[in-house]
Nucleic acid binder design. Structure first.
Lengths: 208, 208
DNA sequence: GCAGAATACGAGCGATCGCTCGTGTTCACT
DNA sequence: AGTGAACACGAGCGATCGCTCGTATTCTGC
C-alpha cells in the first residue's frame, strides 16, 4: 500500500507544545477573520500572527479551508451548548414559556462572539468544503421538532415539518438580524424585553 | 487641477457597440458568478467570456467590484419591480389578503434567477464596496411600514417600527430559505399553497 | 477622404496566494 | 550522552490575481 506523504498534516499533536501550536493557529485564524476579513486571511498571515511558521501550519492543517473549518466548528460548539441547554430547559415548560426561553437563548447565542459570527455569516463563501454552516440549523430544527411532538396537545393541528421550519427559520432570522444589523433594537433591557415579547407573540400566535 | 488619467473608466459609452460591450460584460459576470462562483470570477475570465479584452473591461469598470456591483444592481432592480408592484396591489387590500399577496410576491421574486440570487446571498463578501445588498431590504421595510400605517385600524396596537422589522425579516427569511435551501417545500402547487397559508397565518396572527 | 475621438486589444508587470521541502531544533527514552 | 522521532522553521516555487499601457482598429463629423 502506498504510504501517504509525510509532509501532509499529522493526525495528532502528541506533545504539549504542538497542542499549543494548534490552538494558537485556530485562535489566530479567528482573530484575523475578525480583524481583516476572509479575503485577507492568508496562511502566511495566520502563521505569522500565531507566532508560528507556515511549515508548522501545514503539519497540522491540510490548508486554509481546514483552518477556517476548525474556527467554524469551535464557534458552532459554543452555540450548540447554548441551544441544547435552552431546549432542555424548555422541554418541561408550556409553549409560551418555552418559546420565551428559546428566543432568549437565541439572543444569548448570537452574543457569544458577534464579530466572528458576522464574518462567518457574511464572508465565508458557502461553497466547496465550507458549506456545513447550515448543518447547524438542521440540528436545531430537529430538536425543536421533537419539542413540538411532545407538546402537540398544546397546539392546533399542524404539519410538524412545516411548523418547525417556520418557527426555527423565523427565530433565527430575527435574532440574527437584530443582533448583527440592528443593535439599537437591543440597546437596553427594556428593548430586549420588547423584542422577546414580540418574537414570542409571533411564534406562539402561530402555533396555537 | 490635476486631470485624471485617461485610462480610468470612461463615464459613458456613447456609441452603440460600446453599449453592447458593457452589456456583454455584465451578462458574462452574472454567468461566471453562477457557473464558477465569486472566487473564480476573475476579470480576465469575465472579459474572455464576454468576448472582450481586459483592456476594454477596464475602460468601463474601475475593477472587479464594480462589475459585481452592476450585476447586483441589475438583479435588485428586477426584485424591486416585483416588490413594488406587489405592495401597490396590496395597498388596497385588507390585511389578510395583503399579506398573501406579499408572500406570493416574495416567492415569485426569489424565483427570478435563483442561482444568481444564491450566489449573491452566499458568496459575495459583504464588506468594502459590496455591502449594499442589504439596502434593498431597507426599502421593503419602509414600504411595508407605510402599508401598516395606512391600515393601522385593522390591527392591534403595535410598535410600527418593531412590527415592520418582524414581518419583513420573517417573510424574507422564510421565502429565501424555502426557495434556496428547501426546494422540496415548494415542489408543486399544493405545497406552495401550504407554504403561503402558513406564512400568512404567522404574520396575520401576529399583527391582529 | 481624412483627422481625431472613441473603442478594442492583449502581453505582461508586480503583488499575492497556497503550499513544499530541505534543514535546524527540541523532546522522550534509554 | 546519544539517538531517533516529533516539531518548527522559512526561503521560495508555480500559479493566479487585478490591472496598465502601448498599440491597433473603428466610428463620427466635416
Amino acid at each position: 500500500m502506498a504510504r501517504k506523504p509525510l509532509t501532509n498534516p499529522r493526525k495528532h499533536a502528541s506533545q504539549e507544545r504542538s497542542r499549543a501550536t494548534v490552538d494558537a493557529l485556530i485562535e489566530a485564524t479567528a482573530r484575523i477573520l475578525i480583524l481583516e476579513g476572509f479575503d485577507r486571511a492568508s496562511t502566511n498571515r495566520i502563521a505569522e500572527r500565531a507566532g508560528v511558521s507556515v511549515g508548522s501550519l501545514y503539519q497540522y492543517f491540510p490548508g486554509k479551508d481546514a483552518l477556517v473549518a476548525a474556527v467554524i466548528d469551535r464557534h458552532r460548539q459554543e452555540l450548540g451548548e447554548v441551544a441544547r441547554s435552552a431546549l432542555q430547559k424548555a422541554s418541561g415548560q408550556p409553549i409560551k414559556q418555552a418559546v420565551r426561553t428559546l428566543v432568549a437563548a437565541a439572543i444569548e447565542a448570537h452574543r457569544i462572539d458577534p464579530r466572528l459570527h458576522r464574518v462567518l455569516a457574511e464572508q465565508i463563501p458557502r461553497t466547496g468544503r465550507l458549506e456545513k454552516v447550515e448543518t447547524f440549523s438542521r440540528e436545531n430544527y430537529a430538536l425543536f421538532r421533537a419539542y413540538l411532538e411532545r407538546h402537540s396537545d398544546e397546539l392546533r393541528a399542524v404539519d410538524l415539518e412545516l411548523a418547525s421550519f417556520v418557527c426555527v427559520t423565523s427565530i433565527e432570522a430575527l435574532t440574527h438580524s437584530a443582533v448583527l444589523h440592528n443593535p439599537a433594537m437591543l440597546s437596553d433591557d427594556a428593548a430586549v424585553k420588547a423584542f422577546i415579547d414580540e418574537t414570542t407573540r409571533l411564534i406562539v400566535g402561530y402555533l396555537q
